[in-house]
């Protein structure tokens, strides 16, 4: 097995702590403090997580801008929520549309105010530059293009196609902060005082309208009714498949 020539592996004596196989092994050093080396270490030693510095004004504004943009995308026609009821299509499954989960909640009256989640983007609400899209998507963009003109259906009301953008001024950070502060104040107050003073409340609302832009539909070009109430939901069923169209 061994080819010999090495005077035994354990032979440490001889040349004053020479080492194994000619390699210098550092002598035991009590300063290394390896005393508790043999003990099992604590499984989850307490760790202090590093805390990030609070956001600067610049960063807060950036975040505010990001949120504003996101809110507007969410309000716009392209945002979609598939929800829990999305499924892989199986032919034998009946067509069901579930807009609420019976195991979690019962339908309440206020549910009619909840924002309707869109399962499909409403594409026909804005103009497109058709040449940027591949040919096979053209019919999706503009449903009049894909169909042959022979099928004489009712002449459909042409929806008004405009870009929905925000024309009003973006609130500055000061305004956002002021609003937040006011909100917090209100939150503290309303614990104590009863809801009663209608006039004051009215005033508060008006103030609110003046600078809370992100929660203010009036100030926006986006017109929610346009998407839901133009009686076009039926047209979407040409594919005849699952959960498409709008959720009601």
């Amino acid at each position: 097995m061994s080819r010999g020539g090495r005077g035994g592996f354990g032979g440490r004596g001889g040349r004053g702590g020479g080492g194994v196989g000619g390699v210098d092994i550092p002598a035991w050093d009590p300063e290394l403090k390896l005393d508790n080396y043999n003990k099992p270490s604590e499984l989850f030693p307490p760790v202090k997580p590093p805390l990030a510095a609070p956001p600067t004004r610049q960063e807060r504004t950036q975040v505010a801008r990001y949120r504003a943009l996101r809110d507007r995308i969410h309000e716009g026609p392209l945002y979609t929520v598939l929800g829990d009821n999305v499924r892989v299509k199986k032919p034998d499954q009946p067509k069901v549309k579930i807009s609420y989960n019976p195991f979690n909640s019962t339908q309440t009256y206020t549910a009619k105010y909840t924002r309707k989640a869109r399962a499909m983007p409403a594409l026909d609400t804005r103009p497109y530059i058709i040449c940027f899209f591949p040919v096979e998507l053209h019919s999706t963009l503009d449903r009049s293009m894909g169909k042959t003109s022979g099928s004489s259906t009712m002449p459909r009301k042409v929806p008004r196609r405009r870009l929905q953008i925000d024309k009003s001024t973006l609130p500055t950070l000061e305004e956002l902060e002021a609003e937040e502060q006011r909100r917090n104040l209100r939150a503290d107050d309303s614990d104590v005082e009863d809801v009663g003073d209608e006039d004051e409340e009215q005033q508060e609302q008006e103030e609110d309208d003046a600078f809370s832009e992100d929660e203010d539909d009036e100030n926006n070009d986006y017109n929610a009714e346009q998407y839901f109430d133009d009686g076009e939901a039926d047209d979407y069923d040409e594919g005849g498949d699952d959960g498409g169209g709008y959720d009601y």
Binding site: L69, R70, L78, Y79, T80, V81, L82, R118, P121
Partner: peptide, 8 residues
């Protein structure tokens, strides 16, 4: 997902 929703 955060900006354009589930389908996209």
């Amino acid at each position: 997902d955060d900006l354009y929703g589930n389908l996209s």
